[in-house]
């Protein structure tokens, strides 16, 4: 079952083509790695899939809804974690969870159970009353992820969720991702860490707004006769002519 299917999706800003005619599909329950150098167009593509940005041309279906005409329905079925930390820093940990649970329509009576459950999964029981701004970066990212899936969405979009996070916390973060995937949530993740790319079921590599390669990490390594994903990425991304922004 396809939860994302994209056809010839394009986004231009003036004369600049950020996303250039991309097409791909993502299956339910998959962990889909969306790789690319800085400025390759990953974030623009994700923002279109989440209904934050309107495509210039092409179509996309996310969770069974058209991203252009049914963007509000798309929004109800997805979770999104932006590149930039965007929880409320002047709210406490539990208050952030409560807010987003409420917004996504989790029934009031289930919310406090939901908060406890998420705090437990995160190992954050002691941080319940902490203001979010007091948390270290890695913890903030874990909390963001937890909140992005608070309403059990069909798909969660993670835009560089582990940027700047230490290796131990990154490992814990990926454990959270696996847990969510095991519950049937499709994961759509961008990253610059090639060890993380190895954890994905399939990865796509974007260069200059186009998808240059799309397959499982194993097949990609074979195809480009590389030892690891890092080499695959180096070979493809070196072709880029566009400057990183």
């Amino acid at each position: 079952m396809k939860v994302i299917s994209v056809n010839n999706l394009t986004k231009t800003f003036g004369t600049f083509t950020a996303v250039d005619n991309i097409s791909f599909e993502v299956t339910k329950g998959e962990i889909f790695g969306f790789l690319g150098a800085n400025g390759a167009g990953k974030t623009t593509a994700i923002r279109m899939l989440c209904g934050l940005s309107k495509p210039t041309s092409g179509t996309g279906m996310v969770a069974g809804f058209n991203i252009e005409t049914e963007s509000e329905k798309v929004k109800a079925s997805i979770g999104y974690m932006s590149q930039k930390f965007s929880l409320y820093e002047d709210l406490k940990v539990w208050e952030n969870i409560r807010l987003y649970a409420g917004i996504y329509g989790v029934p009031e009576k289930n919310i406090s159970a939901k908060i406890d459950q998420h705090l437990q999964t995160l190992g954050f029981e002691k941080e319940r009353e902490t203001l979010v701004k007091a948390l270290p970066l890695g913890w903030k990212q874990k909390l963001s992820f937890s909140i992005a899936i608070v309403h059990d969405p069909k798909i969660v979009f993670l835009d560089e969720p582990t940027g700047g996070v230490d290796p131990v916390t990154r490992r814990q973060f990926w454990e959270l991702i696996y847990q969510a995937a095991n519950r049937g949530i499709t994961i759509f993740v961008t990253t610059h860490y090639m060890d993380e790319a190895e954890y994905c079921d399939r990865v796509s590599i974007m260069v200059d707004g186009k998808i240059e390669a799309l397959d499982s990490p194993k097949n990609l390594k074979n195809k480009y006769s590389s030892k690891n994903m890092d080499e695959v990425f180096q070979r493809l991304a070196r072709k880029a002519s566009r400057d990183a922004d």
Binding site: C50, E72, K75, A76, I78, S86, L87, I103, Y104, G105
Partner: peptide, 14 residues
């Protein structure tokens, strides 16, 4: 400026 509005915009809030 903080970017929190974007998180709101990706929710189904009207």
């Amino acid at each position: 400026e903080k970017g929190t509005i974007e998180q709101m915009n990706v929710t189904p809030v009207k």
